[in-house]
Design a binder for these strands. Structure first.
Lengths: 110, 110
DNA sequence: ATTGTATATCGTAAATATACGATTGATATT
DNA sequence: AATATCAATCGTATATTTACGATATACAAT
């Protein structure tokens, strides 16, 4: 790239694109599902389940934290992760809105 | 990377991740919205509206075609693009299912 | 036939993402 | 205090993505 042109698009478009990027890797989806399934997960449990090195899982967790899709708390030497349901709902709403609004734009659809 | 490990994740996870990747750039979202709004778009109209070079828009269109989110037909010297609503619905369903199922996994949520 | 127009493709540069091993830091155990 | 364990971070290699200009191709208009 010369330089990204993302700033030239509007906020909604960038927000949806950013949200999509967060879940655009199967590892991050698997991590989210695992944490949701267990209610809360220590990092080691996630590493055990995923076919990736510990450092790679840690990187993916960092991405999810940055997006605030999960929260992380230190429990002694371990790290415990939970889904941040508030953000999770926000993601869901943003995607749903995109799909619904885009369809509505086109009166002949469906 | 050494080599991607995506094959090691299951089909559903990879499908959702792939779908997310397609809409993980604001230009592609803007293109989809523009096509939906106009019902059908010739390439030039999209290029006019987007803050990107013609060749870059063409690349994004190719991505959307590859994902079958749009269809493209040649009309003389011009190219006309439409939303492929069938795939569009499939995307919507896949995202919705992910959000709903992940929430259901966690009985204490909401 | 020549010229113009629209768009896809090619080549390339640079940014970003993904993955891993090694290291670090912090706590827990002995 | 010494050692073990867990997880974050660093450094690095490589793959992928994004962007553009230049070029090629195909049709339209003159």
């Amino acid at each position: 790239m010369a330089a990204t042109r993302k700033e030239e698009f509007n906020k909604k478009e960038n927000e949806l694109a950013d949200f999509a990027r967060v879940i655009s890797h199967p590892a991050r989806i698997a991590i989210l599902k695992e944490i949701a399934r267990r209610e809360e997960c220590i990092c080691g449990e996630i590493v055990e389940v995923l076919p990736l090195a510990q450092s790679t899982v840690s990187q993916h967790l960092k991405e999810l934290l940055k997006a605030e899709l999960i929260t992380g708390t230190v429990d002694g030497v371990k790290s415990c992760y939970c889904i941040n349901w508030k953000t999770f709902e926000k993601f869901e709403k943003t995607f749903t809105e995109f799909f619904v609004r885009t369809k509505v734009q086109n009166p002949n659809c469906c």
